[in-house]
C-alpha cells in the first residue's frame, strides 16, 4: 500500500510494524472501552472507525489492518492512519507521542505542542515558509536515548485550513487534497531525512484573545507538564492502554531534558515573522 507522506526509512532491518488489508470487525465484541470512533478490546486491540469512511484494527502495537472493504482514497487513509491510528500504535507500544508539530531550528528539533486548534500546524507552516525543515505534523514519537529526547520524523505534510493557507501566502488551490471536498488542505513541506532528531525545545502554543502581540515565556515545575493533554497526543487513549504511569514518567523525563516554553499568540491578525523569531529563540537558548 503506498504511503507517499512518509519519509524514506533509514534502517535496513526487519519492519517492526506492518500495515495490510484484511477483515476488520464493525464493532469489537465486549470492548472494555468505546467511543463513537474508537473501541478497545479486552486483549488490547484497538478498533478505529470513522463510520462509512475507513476502519483500522491495531493488534499488539505492531500490526495495523485496514478494512479490506474500505475504498477510500490514499489521502483519506493517510489522514486517519497518521493521526488516531498512529496514536493508538504508539500508546500500545509504550512510545511517548508528543502532541506537536515539529521543525528543525539549526541542528535541533523544536516541537510546537498543544491541544487541537491552537495553530500548531499553521505555525509549522510558517516556520517551513521561513526555511525550516518539517520533522512531523501533529504527532512526534519521542525516544529517550543516552540522556537525550529524540524525535522520529514522520509525514512532513501539514494540514491547513484556508485561512492558515492565506496567512502563509498560499493559494488554497495550490495545496494537495486531504479528504476530497473538505476545506482543510495539505501542504507538502520540505522534510528531513528519516534519522531521529534531537529535541531542543518544546513550545506550548496558546491563544489569548486579549493580547495583541505574541508572548513567550519559559515554564517550570508542574505547570510545564500540566495539563497532560497539552503535551500528550490523546492522553486518555494512552491511559486506557495501561500508560497512566508511563506517560507521567515520560513527561517528567521530557521536562528534565528539554526546556518547555509557552508561546501565547493573539487570535486576530498578527505578523507571522514575530512568531518565527520567538520559536527560533527557544532553540538558541537551548544551546
Amino acid at each position: 500500500m503506498p504511503l507517499p507522506s512518509l519519509p524514506a526509512p533509514t534502517g535496513h532491518g526487519e519492519p517492526d510494524l506492518t500495515l495490510s488489508r484484511g477483515p476488520v470487525p464493525h464493532r469489537l465484541q465486549a470492548p472494555v472501552w468505546s467511543s463513537h470512533f474508537v473501541e478497545i478490546g479486552a486483549d488490547g486491540a484497538v478498533l478505529v472507525r470513522v463510520p462509512d469512511v475507513v476502519g483500522f484494527l491495531v493488534r499488539d502495537g505492531c500490526k495495523v489492518i485496514l478494512d479490506e472493504d474500505c475504498d477510500a482514497e490514499t489521502s483519506v487513509i493517510e489522514t486517519f492512519l497518521f493521526s488516531t491510528v498512529a496514536g493508538a500504535v504508539l500508546h500500545r507500544r509504550g512510545i511517548f507521542p508528543l502532541h506537536a508539530s515539529c521543525v528543525m531550528v539549526g541542528d535541533v528539533a523544536v516541537a510546537l505542542a498543544g491541544v487541537s486548534g491552537r495553530g500548531k500546524s499553521t505555525l509549522a507552516g510558517i516556520m517551513s515558509m521561513h526555511g525550516h525543515d518539517v520533522v512531523s505534523d501533529d504527532i512526534c514519537p519521542v525516544a529517550f536515548q543516552n540522556g537525550r529526547a529524540m524525535i522520529a520524523p514522520g509525514p512532513c505534510r501539514i494540514r491547513l485550513w484556508p485561512d492558515s493557507a492565506t496567512l502563509l501566502g498560499l493559494s488554497h488551490e495550490a495545496l494537495d487534497v486531504g479528504r476530497p471536498n473538505h476545506p482543510k488542505r495539505v501542504l507538502s513541506a520540505r522534510g528531513t531525512d528519516g534519522a531521529p532528531k534531537p529535541l531542543g525545545a518544546v513550545v506550548r502554543v496558546a491563544i489569548d484573545r486579549r493580547i495583541e502581540t505574541p508572548i513567550l515565556h519559559r515554564l517550570s515545575g508542574p505547570s510545564a507538564i500540566t495539563p497532560m493533554e497539552e503535551l500528550v497526543y490523546r492522553a486518555r487513549l494512552g491511559r486506557r492502554l495501561d500508560r497512566r504511569v508511563g506517560l507521567f514518567q515520560d513527561l517528567v523525563r521530557l521536562a528534565a531534558l528539554v526546556p518547555i516554553y509557552q508561546l501565547i499568540r493573539p487570535e486576530g491578525s498578527f505578523d507571522p515573522a514575530l512568531l518565527v523569531d520567538l520559536v527560533r529563540s527557544t532553540a538558541n537558548s537551548a544551546h
Binding site: F37, V38, T79, S83, T84, S116, G117
Partner: peptide, 23 residues
C-alpha cells in the same frame, strides 16, 4: 473540538459536519 478530540479520540477537524453531528 478539543473535547471531541480528547474524549472520543478522533481528529474532529478532519470530519465533515454531518460526521461531527452524529458523534
Amino acid at each position: 473540538h478539543v473535547e471531541m478530540d480528547e474524549l472520543l479520540v478522533v481528529e474532529s477537524s478532519e470530519l465533515f459536519p454531518n460526521e461531527q453531528v452524529a458523534a
